[in-house]
Nucleic acid binder design. Structure first.
Length: 219
DNA sequence: CCATTAATTGGCA
DNA sequence: TGCCAATTAATGG
């Protein structure tokens, strides 16, 4: 028996509200690198991350990708079709690690959104925050260097899903590869590798293993 | 152990 | 910085 975690935008919602959402969907397990949905296909379901990491990305003819969003525990996606009436997925989505997602039919989600003021408020705040995040990321990409972008990305990640160590550093262990990071901030994997190695030399970051980083936020 | 993927490195546009 | 090629390292059977 699985349960919807009170994380992300769900935090603070009553047990009743959580249950209300939970019973409208089904928990589904995804292996890593599984497609969740495709761009331009009919928006039939919404997804809430129970565990693991998923993304939304766009891809051009040459196979170049850009990650529009990363979703971890407590996130809901896609972000269209609730405050507007879009009925197609705006991007592709795949899992970046093993995932459990709560899959909710579009109509049920719209119904919940329309009928429950508390949930509507929380969800609206969540969507607004995601929108702000996107703007921040975009301005970083225009105004900052690759190193700036990697660092601000790691900081955000550490704050959101990092595990605080006793010495104040944060462990990021989400199954994110450097390639994933590169696609997210819009640089090549080589650049991420070089920037990351430099951050290590500066003592700001430590690599524990592949897909595992320890980040020092201040000092 | 091998086969696959991820990460690194150097050279060049 | 990006792109390409060549190597090395790590991961998962």
């Amino acid at each position: 028996m699985q349960q919807l975690p009170a994380a992300g935008w769900l935090k603070g919602l009553s047990e009743e509200a959580l249950h209300h959402i939970e019973i409208k969907g089904v928990f589904r397990h995804y292996p890593s690198k599984e497609t969740v949905f495709l761009q331009k296909s009919e928006l039939t379901h919404y997804y809430i991350v129970v565990s693991g990491l998923a993304n939304a990305y766009r891809q051009n003819e040459d196979g170049k990708r850009w990650t529009a969003g990363l979703f971890s525990k407590g996130d809901l996606f896609p972000h269209v079709g609730l405050l507007d009436d879009k009925h197609e997925y705006p991007a592709n989505s795949e899992t970046l690690s093993e995932c459990t997602l709560l899959v909710i039919p579009r109509n049920e989600m719209r119904m919940i959104f329309a009928s429950n003021p508390q949930i509507r408020l929380y969800l609206t705040l969540f969507l607004t925050e995601k929108s702000q995040d996107l703007i921040a990321r975009f301005s970083d990409s225009v105004l900052g260097t690759a190193a700036d972008r990697v660092l601000s990305f790691l900081k955000k990640l550490a704050c959101n899903s990092g595990i605080r160590e006793s010495d104040g550093r944060y462990l990021i262990d989400l199954g994110l590869t450097e390639q994933n990071i590169a696609e997210y901030i819009g640089v090549t994997p080589e650049t991420v590798s070089r920037v990351l190695n430099r951050l290590c030399e500066e003592g700001k970051v430590e690599k524990l293993a592949r897909k595992k980083l320890l980040v020092r936020l201040q000092t």
